[in-house]
Design a protein around this nucleic acid. Structure first.
Lengths: 336, 336
DNA sequence: TATAAACGTCGAAGCGCTTCGACGAAGGGC
DNA sequence: GCCCTTCGTCGAAGCGCTTCGACGTTTATA
């Protein structure tokens, strides 16, 4: 591989001039710049990442911690990751992948200067990674909210507002008894905060609207889903509006409703909290609150980059306002 | 951050001794080693990755090219990736993430010495990345088979044998008319080679067994799936055995069969080609040929590491023998 | 027209690590 | 008791880049 010295020799300038031409950190005359560019092209020169990192104290890599167990919502995770990688490239950074629980990896990549910044996915209320992050020099942004956000940069969908939005919409349509079909028990137990927040928003808004409401967790296996749906339907009079925040259970919920002879939206209205693509992919296109995973990923990168560029940028928490799109799964409750 | 020099000073040795103690490349007396380890621990020393890479010409990072569009089989992709990352860590390497089509990124990370080796997922028959790989210095292993594998390291499930296995099993059970519900049209068109290979194996083995067989592509949207299933069922006499190699369509295929009143396995036997977890997750546990994605990912890393360690290790193609597990979805065809 | 400022370029000093060769001390073979 | 290894350690030379200060040359400013 050619080095910057080879380029300098071919362009008949010093290596520092090549460096400045390439980084743009000092003015270079058009003529010189052209010669350098020609030399770079002719040799196929690429700067050595390690040398650059050593000299400049910047690796141009950001770390991404991502859950990789085949679990709850692979599709969403993937969209986050896609958003992160794409946007990182736009900031001309690469992405180093870390698994969710690799606490030691976190220290290795930060202390070893492998990464300039970090994006942490799927944050839990009392996340073990937060203390590590606090003492590291690199800026980090969390996707999700820990219990204490002071001094941390966080970004997420406003799940509480999402819960409210769903409840208010169902109330507006005339439903007087509604239910949230929520995250699987294991997610709740891990205290991934979004699950709690949806519940709080949903129940709170329902109370305020004077509508009866309940929230249930819902496993992802078909039988478990059936049991949950059955329990809901067997109550009398029972809910006429459902808000489903559980991507993996969603198809089976709809399927069970069909099996039980309940028409959507004739007998039951359904609102889902999921990515648009998922809402579309169902047999009845679902009225949904979008989970803009890719956008959140991009935004996380933007935030972390801003702080990398200018350390005085404050570490704020940004909660994205949820938006609802009405499709074919909602309507007025059936007349009694 | 402390440097190796700080450690050396504290341990009262030279920096080279510290380096040798840490790498184990030269013998160090127990007493010295202990002092060095103590100093490392006391200072919380971590070697600077860039400096190490520069001096040793090894980054201890492997590149992983992974498709991140929300597409065909996110769960499988994720399992591959999980396998890769986990095993890479066992070889004390980190993983740099590249998107599937980032050809320029490939050159950047190889020529810029960001990675020591590469794992490339989801290889197509005439993959544009292959020429780039051939001219790069780093060892690479492909997950999937390009048209010309000479000189390349590849690893994949033996999809052709999988097709055969399914056909033979259905024939053995007494089915005389069988069908392959295959990959979505867009996958076939991209000539992701595994789709073709399954078809070839399935039809070939069926012919040999003297069994009528057909192969159809199958989109992933519910209506598309229904149409495919309907077309199959409306033929008379029609197939009594199905081999489904399309993870996203799988639940809907089963659902449509139920809607059409066909019992599994009473009226129709179904074999799936998918990860075990998917086969279990269906309402009827599916007889399946396992797609051991995580294992393939690990194996890919092992192969690439072997070649990294010893450049004379040949670049071989390894096709994993498929294994079938009988569950509740297969049996004899109905009596006529 | 004298003088300060900006421009364009260069040389050299690192950044933090690995690795080669060297060298004294200790151990083995005869 | 001598020579040859092996062991354990050190010093120094890079690895390929960035960046600081310096220095002639223009160009603007008064």
């Amino acid at each position: 591989m050619p080095t910057i010295e080879d380029v300098a020799r071919l362009a008949k300038v010093s290596t520092s001039t090549v460096s400045y031409a390439l980084s743009g950190k000092r003015p270079i005359s058009p003529a010189t710049r052209r010669r350098i560019e020609a030399a770079v092209a002719e040799l196929g020169y690429r700067p050595h990442a390690g040398a650059k990192a050593l000299a400049s104290a910047r690796s141009e890599v950001i770390g991404l911690m991502m859950p990789m167990r085949v679990g709850v919502d692979v599709a969403v995770i993937m969209q986050f990751a896609g958003g992160v990688v794409l946007r990182a490239r736009e900031h001309s950074h690469d992405v180093l992948l870390l698994t969710q629980d690799d606490l030691d990896g976190l220290e290795r990549v930060t202390d070893g200067s492998m990464v300039d910044a970090l994006v942490i996915m799927d944050v839990e209320a009392d996340d073990a990674r937060v203390p590590v992050l606090r003492r590291s020099k690199q800026p980090a942004v969390l996707i999700g909210l820990p219990r204490l956000t002071a001094g941390l940069a966080c970004v997420d969908l406003d799940f509480e507002a999402s819960g409210q939005l769903a409840a208010v919409e169902l109330a507006r349509l005339g439903h007087r008894d509604i239910a949230l079909v929520g995250a699987p028990p294991e997610v709740l137990e891990r205290h991934t905060s979004y699950a709690d927040r949806v519940v709080r928003g949903f129940l709170g808004a329902a109370a305020q609207e004077g509508v009866a409401a309940q929230a249930v967790t819902c496993p992802v296996d078909p039988d478990g889903v059936d049991a949950v749906v059955d329990r809901l339907l067997d109550r009398t009079p029972g809910p006429t509006g459902l808000f489903v925040h559980n991507e993996r259970a969603l198809p089976q919920v709809l399927h069970r409703l069909r099996e039980r002879g309940r028409a959507v939206p004739g007998d039951l209205s359904v609102i889902a909290l999921c990515p648009e693509s998922t809402a579309h992919a169902q047999q009845v296109p679902l009225t949904s609150i979008d989970l803009p995973a890719e956008r959140i990923g991009s935004l996380a990168v933007d935030m972390v980059m801003a702080r990398l560029r200018d350390a005085s940028v404050p570490a704020e928490t940004r909660l994205l306002t949820p938006t609802m799109t009405s499709r074919a799964s909602t309507g007025a409750p059936p007349a009694r």
